[in-house]
């Protein structure tokens, strides 16, 4: 058997089991860690598809940065699992409905994809080599420049709005002024007292 196929099956199995673990594990921190692991497994599956740029970026951005912050927050929160599980029966029917819709849409999409698999979008654009990373960069800055810049601006807007939402100033807030701290002189902090009794 081919090595790639063995790796594919191992990591798909791991991906499926860790994704199931995300929703079934009781401890929120462990569930977040399972999510990290499932990201890692899907990065390896992408690597098998020769999409090395996407797979490394998935690890760098999602595993290395986003999930760290996620884990950070989950660890700080004190989540009561039994309380969160109370509404399980109540929301079960809605959950089934959402699941069925998403599964139906995905299978419809995949069915159509495999139906006309002869149409490959990527080959219609001239590429500058076999290097996936270079090709992607080339396409982003020529063919899809506008879409790329729009995405960047949307992200920038997201950053600005998130910061304005969290930046609340109140009278009780305490700030340090670094330039004031640096400019402190010796005379402000130190006073030399002469011990007159002893000098007599």
């Amino acid at each position: 058997m081919n090595v790639e196929i063995i790796i594919f099956y191992i990591f798909s199995l791991l991906l499926l089991s860790s994704s199931i673990a995300v929703v079934t594990v009781n401890n929120p921190v462990k569930s977040a860690i399972s999510l990290v692991f499932s990201f890692f497994c899907s990065a390896i599956l992408w690597l098998l598809l020769n999409a090395e740029f996407l797979s490394i970026i998935l690890i760098l951005v999602y595993v290395g940065a986003v999930m760290v912050l996620f884990l950070f927050v989950v660890m700080m929160l004190d989540i009561n699992i039994s309380q969160a599980k109370e509404g399980f029966v109540k929301y079960f029917s809605i959950g089934i409905f959402v699941f069925a819709t998403i599964a139906g849409l995905l299978s419809y999409f995949f069915y159509n994809q495999f139906d006309n698999s002869s149409k490959n979008i990527i080959t219609s654009i001239d590429l500058i080599g076999t290097d996936n990373t270079k090709n992607l960069g080339y396409l982003l800055y020529t063919e899809y420049l506008l879409a790329f810049e729009i995405a960047a601006i949307i992200l920038l807007l997201g950053i600005i709005s998130a910061i304005t939402l969290t930046l609340r100033k109140s009278a009780t807030n305490k700030y340090q002024n670094p330039s004031q701290q640096v400019n402190v002189s010796k005379s402000e902090r130190l006073r030399i007292i002469k011990d007159e009794d002893r000098e007599k």
Binding site: E52, F53, I56, L60, V63, G64, L71, N132
Partner: peptide, 23 residues
């Protein structure tokens, strides 16, 4: 080919060791 990215991605993983050890 993507050596530099590979290094960046892997060095960003070591933070998990620290976080999980602490927790």
């Amino acid at each position: 080919n993507a050596g530099l990215l590979f290094i960046l991605a892997l060095t960003s993983l070591s933070v998990y060791g620290v976080i999980l050890a602490g927790w």
